[in-house]
Design a protein around this nucleic acid. Sequence first.
RNA 1: GCUGGCGUAGCUCAAUCGGUAGAGCAGCGGUUUUGUAAACCGCAGGUCGGAGGUUCGAUUCCUCUCGCCAGCUCCA
Length: 646
Amino acid sequence: MESIQVSIQGGRSQAFPKGISAKAAIEKLKGAVPPEVFAVKANGVEKDLLAPLETDAALQPLAFDSPEGKEIYRHSSTHIMAQAVKECFPTAQLTIGPAIEEGFFYDFSFDRPFTPEDLESIEKRAKAIIASNLTVTRLEMSKSEAIEYFRQRGEHYKVELLEGIPDDQVSLYQQGEFVDLCRGPHVPSTGHIKAFKILTSAGAYWRGDERNPMLQRLYGTSFPSEEALQAHLDNLEEIKRRDHRKLGKDLDLFSIQDETGPGLILWHPKGAQIRLLIENFWREQHLANQYELVYSPHVARLDLWKTSGHVDFYKENMFTPMPVESSEYQLKPMNCPFHIMVYKSHLRSYRDLPIRYGELGTVYRYERSGVLHGLMRVRGFTQDDAHLFCRPDQLAEEVQKVLKFTTFMLGTFGFTEFKMFLSTRPEKAVGTLEQWDQATLALEAALKDGGYPYQEDPGEGVFYGPKIDVKIQDALGRSWQCSTIQIDFNNPQRFGLTYVGEDGKTHQPIMIHRALLGSIERFFGILLEHYGGAFPAWLAPVQVLVLPISEKHQAYGQQVEKKLRGEGCRVALDLRNEKIGLKIREGEKAKVPFMIVVGDREAEAEMVSVRQRNGKNLGTMSIIDVVTLIRDDMPEAVRKGSFLFE
RNA sequence: GCUGGCGUAGCUCAAUCGGUAGAGCAGCGGUUUUGUAAACCGCAGGUCGGAGGUUCGAUUCCUCUCGCCAGCUCCA
């Protein structure tokens, strides 16, 4: 019999008869398969434990702790859910059911939405399937056999899927009576799923296309232990608690009201104070880094948007134009044309470049009603926008500076984990291939020179040029896209932008669109959730709350308040006739970083007692000590006022 | 935009199987003069999201509409 060489994770290899299962090989090599292992990678390819090995193989056992293992685990879980649904509701048809980031879903074609009671019975059934520890077996058959098989079972979506598969041979997985078309691999038996939960149901379109029938999607998740599942559920609760819409209301930061219109934000005084601090810091930094700040109007002639191409390429996101006298005006969806017009306002020399125009520019975009979401997705928002006009030889350096600026800005706000994405030429694109190559290379060079790890997103660029997107990770590990750096060779051409070169001839500048925070609204929402409303002192709308113990101490409290205010602190004074316990409770709920209690002892010594947010008593100190306390809490760049990072 | 759920006082939530609604907190008035997460008493507060319909009578049932939530799709 032919033999093959098999090893585990770089260990010594041993000869086995060809066709031995991965499981048997591991048992021979290591004595037993560890209980947490449910699949393997053989020469980098994921396989079932029982898969026969046909060639020499380096095995890597897979458990839940690896990304591949997690996916297999969740994928097997969704099969169990599908089996439970078929058993509870035999008329439901199977469609697709993949693993996702935190769990899995399965879409069913069913004549009505699943109710919460349905979910309960499905979950119960799924748990019974797990308890009975059904063996999961792989079946292979020809495509035509499989089509016939599913047609007989009335699984029309599976038939449609099969018809789209190019291979002649397909695999199916069976557990008990349940069979599903699936590439695999899977756990060897249903009992490997230790903790299983169905979370929600929702509608979803077949193949994600809104013209297709609506399916019923069930979301669920699974973990190797009840504790891990509970931790995940706790995390979901925490996310709910930190929801910026809830915190925004609780802390009285902003509101969105029916009468005003959906997707339009009203910034209340405290929210506005935080926004002002963000904006002030932003402006300071931009001036320090040789940006020039401009302002532009909120509407412009429709013709401007025709020139820019927005009428052709962006119409579905624009508000309807309004007639004004004999022409039409358009509420602005972008800031770029205005900055371009500033550039165009006079002749430019190669010596003037790069030119960097920055603006906190408010734009209005028509978003379909179903996509609006608190501050994260709105119809009117302020971009921290800038447009850089540069020569081709300056492109890479400018991009790199922007990248540095980005990580510096986001870092100051407390975000230190970044993921960068390089998006390349989409199918629908303007510009020559040379231009795309040159620009993409410049972006790549900037990423590499800066030592930023990145992923490529092929075909995800904007129609006018490639881009780099930066995603940040918040305190709960979720990622958010804020920054974007886009190269544009379309607009300089459309608007006929030029500069006079060293050679005396006219040349076309390259334009970079960039936003560091993305939109102030979204960034504010992310910050709010990141800190759970407990902003660091430099951003807190009220930094210190002065709490006199009784009426007797009001005068001293007022003195303390005045002095702190004089030192530039944002301070509030609670003169209400209430007990100190209540005032502290309310200060805590408002998440004020420092509270000062003043009574007889403090008034006499001309000192203050300081209590930090969340109860830590910092003891008695002088008023100036409090000022230092707040100042020490600020990031270096904020304390310095301006910060040149070059 | 689509599917499903929801909309009751400033906030969080009850109740009415069709007979015009109630609590806590917040607010206001008073008592209390207070030492690190809720003192006590009282008062006031609602066209039950909006429009139309059915009915003797609608917050409740029906239709439409606006908005919110989850998801799909899209995105700063």
